[in-house]
Design a protein around this nucleic acid. Structure first.
Length: 504
RNA sequence: GGCCCGUUCGUCUAGGGGUUAGGACAUCAGAUUUUCAUUCUGGUAACAGGGGUUCGAUUCCCCUACGGGCUACCA
């Protein structure tokens, strides 16, 4: 008897999607996959004033990057199209007409000034509702004859929902349980704007009905207006076909107040967008992709931000997420965004990537720097850095010092650890190393340790110094392997450069 | 202001009328690495407050506080 499972992700192309949107899409996707349903992308582009060119393409590219591919949607086919609301204008007018005829909606001719005057009255809190509609300029007060005449004369008008008096509107939210509103708190929402376009509420309800949507999983910002949506379903006589609602907790800023917003990335120093977004004036907002995130890691991280399966498992493959997902286990309260935890997820995923794949990426990243690496070099860089990378591009960031000139040395190290009396030791080491025939880390290690035993320098002073000489910074992998990888000739040169720098 | 939703370690969360309130990230300490990192071990750290209900409440109810959302011819 259950309806087929059909869920929609319905973003508005007013700019780039942010990760909250990706999480919403993910939950929709997981639910459909778990119940063998359809995952539908619907573009809610009914606000012509806020339409941003390229945003739709951006949304689709983002979904593709993370692997949440719609079964239906613009460019994805499907029997219930068009999936862009701007292309469904005629449908909405038809249904709006129907509502007016049934007496569930009415035409309104109030000007912006008149609406402001209404709002400002009664202490600035007055709504356009069943208490005030009788004092406004609409087909309820004017009569249908006059209204028709005004419309024929070209007077701009909107269509408003005629919210019934003194009723309780109840929503059975899958996540929150029973939530109720009273119609006395609800205004007569505009359904069709004066440009002929529907508002979100109107288009949303009609499309969900027409597209046979079974469950609406969306952000909590929609919970309040769901009361109007329920009223709309009733007005149309579609109450029995109403989808189940599940309102998701919001993702909050890491610190401070409010929900995570698109501008927070710049402020907190981490991406909030899945992939980078270039604003028309050339400003670019970096994305998780460009930051180096694995799409599966991002999804895993996002999935756990407001949901868990009741166990202590944190690492889930996408299939495991599908198997384990349930709306009932979604947390009710908002979740602060913790970028550090996101990085941890990425690191975990990076460890799972096989060496052969990683080596390919290392070669590709170096190639972009115009450095063509030999197979052995790629493997060596992998070996050297695999325990300390968080993103795959870190291999390149760490490894490029072996192929580029060293332009500066860690200031703190030089100031704190460098002592002029170390100089002879450095020079001795340069000689010892350059004398090694069997160029291997093990041999280098033996010789260096022998030297340290002479007491010329302490190990704690020597090894970090060698790292600085090799790479500019005192942290890094095993020094002996570093030296081996640097190569004898380059090692000698770098020691020379370092010694010159210290003498300056 | 009004309406609606929420509140367990710094953060994400598990749990649920009787628990040493568990895990993860972060953080701190120890071990190992004659160095940093890794790894391992261990530690600090939470039921917002006040009333009920109850033999017993962090868990159920109410109030307060705090947080969040909505309050547009935006979605």
């Amino acid at each position: 008897m259950d309806k087929p499972v059909r869920l929609r992700f319905a973003p508005s192309p007013t700019g780039p999607l942010h990760i909250g949107g990706i999480r919403t899409a993910l939950y929709n996707y997981l639910f459909t996959r778990k119940h063998q349903g359809q995952f539908i992308l619907r573009v809610e582009d009914t606000d012509q004033g806020r339409y941003v060119p390229g945003a739709e393409e951006y949304i689709i590219n983002s979904l593709k990057w993370v692997g949440l591919i719609p079964d239906e949607g613009p460019g994805f086919g499907g029997e219930f199209g068009p999936y862009r609301q701007s292309e469904r204008k005629a449908i909405y007018s038809k249904y709006a007409q129907q509502l007016v005829e049934k007496g569930e909606a009415y035409y309104a001719f109030d000007s912006a000034e008149e609406l402001n005057a209404l709002r400002d009255s009664n202490g600035g809190n007055q709504k356009y509702d069943y208490n005030t509609r009788h004092q406004m300029k609409n087909s309820v007060t004017l009569g249908m004859e006059v209204a028709k005449k005004k419309m024929d004369e070209g007077d701009p008008y909107v269509i408003r929902l005629k919210v019934p008096e003194a009723q309780e509107v109840v929503i059975e939210d899958v996540i929150r349980g029973r939530v109720s509103f009273h119609t006395s708190d609800l205004d007569d929402k505009v359904l069709i704007k004066s440009d002929g376009m529907p508002t979100y509420h109107m288009a949303n309800v009609i499309d969900d009905y027409l597209m046979k949507i079974s469950h609406v999983i969306r952000g909590e910002e929609w919970l309040s207006s769901t009361a109007h949506h329920v009223l709309l379903y009733k007005a149309f006589g579609w109450k029995n076909d109403m989808p189940a609602f599940a309102h998701l907790p919001l993702i909050l800023k890491p610190t401070g107040n409010g929900k995570l917003s698109k501008r927070d990335g710049a402020q907190f120093g981490f991406p909030v967008f899945p992939i980078s977004w270039i604003v028309s004036d050339g400003v670019e907002f970096s994305g998780f992709r460009e930051y180096g995130f694995e799409p599966d890691a991002l999804l895993n991280f996002l999935a756990l931000l407001g949901w868990n399966n009741g166990t202590e498992q944190e690492l889930f493959t996408i299939d495991e997420l599908i198997q384990n997902f349930s709306l009932e286990k979604i947390v009710k309260s908002g979740a602060r965004f913790d970028f550090e935890k996101g990085k941890w997820f990425n690191q975990q995923y990076l460890h799972k990537i096989p060496e052969t794949e990683m080596v390919l990426r290392i070669r590709r990243d170096f190639h972009e720097l115009n450095i063509d690496l030999k197979d052995d070099d790629c493997h060596m860089i992998y070996e050297l850095y695999k325990d300390r990378v968080v993103f795959s591009k870190d291999y390149c960031d760490f490894g490029k010092v072996y192929f580029e000139e060293i332009t500066h040395y860690d200031k703190e190290f030089v100031e704190k650890k460098w002592k002029p009396e170390h100089l002879p030791a450095y020079q001795s080491i340069q000689e010892i190393i350059s004398g090694i025939q069997d160029w291997h880390a093990a041999e280098i290690e033996t010789r260096l340790k022998e030297f340290v035993k002479t007491g010329a320098i302490k190990p704690g002073e020597l090894f970090p110094a060698l790292r600085v000489a090799m790479s500019g910074i005192p942290t890094g992998p095993d020094v002996f392997k570093m030296i081996q990888f640097t190569g004898k000739e380059k090692f000698v040169k770098r020691m020379e450069q370092f010694i010159q720098y210290l003498k300056r």
